[in-house]
Design a protein around this nucleic acid. Structure first.
Lengths: 278, 278
DNA sequence: TGATGTGAACTTATTCACAGCG
DNA sequence: CGCTGTGAATAAGTTCACATCA
């Protein structure tokens, strides 16, 4: 039964921002006010796009350009940026380099991070060699598994250690982020060991809800769930199309509750949501 | 360049549902009302947990039990379930099997799905062999790459085809979902080919915003962004702890930005963070 | 009695629209 | 004049709390 000790944190990809309760008020936040959760995730995206703009030699970008590249609308982007301060130039846009730096700072990326991957199965193996991490300041420096066939080998130049050594190795190498890529049943135990080793960030790929003390931050990535959400949207869309296109045959979608055509989806033509901005 | 034809859809893991404006009222919705986006994602999680409860031989679960297992609170769970109908028994809970079935149906999982992976790098390779898909009704049946060293080999019993054959192979095998795991620059082209092949669901691991026609649904998974969000939360927490613990130094606020990189004197343990930026 | 189902209150997030500045 | 920055308006999502019913 294990009634959760300290109520659920969230760890579902969208975590609730700190309660900002009375205890320690805004003491240390001089400029940067509490940044909404949703904004934080997008800042990371803007950051990457700014990197690309910089590579292409751009000096400035308008909110419109950066927004488009990032897949959001410009109002949202400007609002997001407003949470970290006013670094834009009216009538011009944002200075690429400077904005990049500000976001980096805001996200805490000026602190060095070091990643450990636990569970060197299919996914863990891929994560161990994933180029997308090093390039973004998240070098993988420790790997763990319990399989004797894996312990001792090197992947991408990194030795695979036994899970029992998590604490020691993580401390030695200053690991700050742990990726849990074990099968579900092993995840909690592995997580506990990471926490014991002082790791405060965990990205969980296992299909379980990890129990952690409040100072530890967990995010969950669940690929099967992503696929199911996709499947849902397409099924819904197919149903509503069927209903709209073949209004004959009332039996179109079973009877019971074959997901009713979304009423609002009516915007007929490809025009998509009115976000046609002007 | 390439001003997007039809403004951004979203594709960021949390897509906006239709605007549901006043125009077309609830005329055609017999039972199942429009299901909120956030709810859909959680339904997939409940589904998995129900599967586990079933395996353990449970006949019924209370909202409290299922909620705890899923990492949400019971009110939210009940509200979520209320969108798909009333399948609970007051005073008792939910019948595991029946609820499982209802959610499955709601998510459109009674339709067979077939997955293709494009880009057999580190990540793509892992996705190709990922056990979490088959078990959940998303068998991978096609793999693509352009690397001559990869084309022709088998992974997990599946032949790797050349990207140029996407259309033909996808049609032949009835692929419904495409996973794009290519490098950024190749992603859009690959995406276009998938769309041309009739694929309507795309899970994008490449760090770009894919442009697709409105009938295609895209979700994006960005591991580097996940790590950055984690890093942010921990940095913030560390900062506020530092502020709360070491309230001396009244200059805390500096003036403008310069986020007073809180001295690493924070977490006593051998944590790293020594080097402050510059 | 004990858990569901749900309107209503509340919180968070997005969009609008325009003042203000370079 | 063009683009940023932002208050105000909307919309989406969550939590509360309790009527309801097996």
């Amino acid at each position: 039964m294990t009634l959760p000790p300290h109520a659920g944190d969230t760890q579902t990809g969208a975590n609730g921002t700190g309660p900002a309760d009375g205890a320690a008020p805004a003491a240390a936040a001089p400029v940067t006010r509490a940044i909404p959760e949703a904004t934080v995730a997008r800042l990371a995206v803007y950051l990457r796009m700014l990197g690309e703009f910089a590579e292409q030699g751009a000096d400035t970008v308008s909110s419109e350009e950066l927004a488009t590249a990032s897949g959001v609308n410009s109002a949202k982007l400007r609002k997001d940026l407003s949470y970290i301060g006013s670094y834009g130039i009216r009538g011009v846009g944002y200075e690429v380099r400077s904005l990049h730096h500000q976001i980096e700072r805001t996200l805490g990326l000026d602190e060095p991070q070091t990643v450990a991957v636990v569970g060197i199965g299919n996914l863990g193996h891929a994560l161990a060699g994933y180029g997308g991490f090093v390039g973004r300041g998240f070098p993988v420096t420790a790997l763990f598994d319990i399989d004797p066939d894996l312990v001792g080998i090197h992947i991408n130049g990194i030795l695979v250690d036994h899970v029992r050594d998590i604490a020691r190795v993580c401390r030695e190498r200053g690991v700050t982020i742990g990726l849990v890529a074990t099968p579900g049943p092993a995840a909690q135990s592995v997580c506990d060991q990471l926490v014991a080793a002082g790791v405060r960030c965990i990205l969980n790929f296992a299909p379980v809800v990890l129990q952690v003390p409040p100072q530890v931050e967990v995010r969950k990535v669940d690929l099967a769930v992503e696929l199911q959400v996709l499947a849902f949207h397409v099924a819904r869309r197919r149903d509503s199309e069927a209903a709209a296109r073949v209004p004959l045959d009332g039996t179109a979608g079973a009877h019971l509750a074959a997901l009713p055509n979304s009423p609002a989806a009516t915007n007929g033509h490809g025009a998509v949501n009115g976000s046609a901005v002007s």
